[in-house]
C-alpha cells in the first residue's frame, strides 16, 4: 500500500507501525512516531495498523535552540 512517510509518498508492505519501522531499518533506533498528526507511543506501535494514504511521521533528536 502507499503511505506518506515523512511527507513522501512511499510503497510499503508493512501493515503496522512497528512493522514499518522494521521495513525502514529503524527498529531499535531513537525515534518517535505520529500517524495523521497524533502521537503514537512506542508501546502502541505494534497495534497501530496503517491504512492507505496514512501520514506517518518519524522524528529523531536534532539540534535546536
Amino acid at each position: 500500500m502507499k503511505i506518506f512517510y515523512n511527507g513522501e509518498l512511499m510503497e510499503v508492505t508493512a501493515e503496522s507501525l512497528d512493522a514499518l519501522l522494521r521495513e525502514l531499518n529503524l527498529e531499535g533506533q531513537a525515534v518517535a512516531t505520529a500517524v495523521n498528526g497524533d502521537f503514537v507511543p512506542r508501546s502502541l506501535r505494534a497495534e497501530k495498523l496503517l491504512i492507505e494514504n496514512d501520514h506517518v511521521e518519524v522524528v529523531a533528536p536534532m539540534q535546536g535552540g
Binding site: 515523512n6 511527507g7 529503524l26 533506533q29 531513537a30 525515534v31 518517535a32 511521521e57 518519524v58 522524528v59 529523531a60 533528536p61 536534532m62 539540534q63 535546536g64 535552540g65
Partner: peptide, 19 residues
C-alpha cells in the same frame, strides 16, 4: 541544552549519542 525533533535522517542518532 535545548534540543529539537526533526524528521529522522542518519544524523539524528549520532547527535543523540553526543548529547
Amino acid at each position: 541544552a535545548t534540543v529539537s525533533l526533526r524528521r529522522e535522517n542518519s544524523g539524528g542518532q549520532a547527535f543523540r549519542e553526543w548529547l
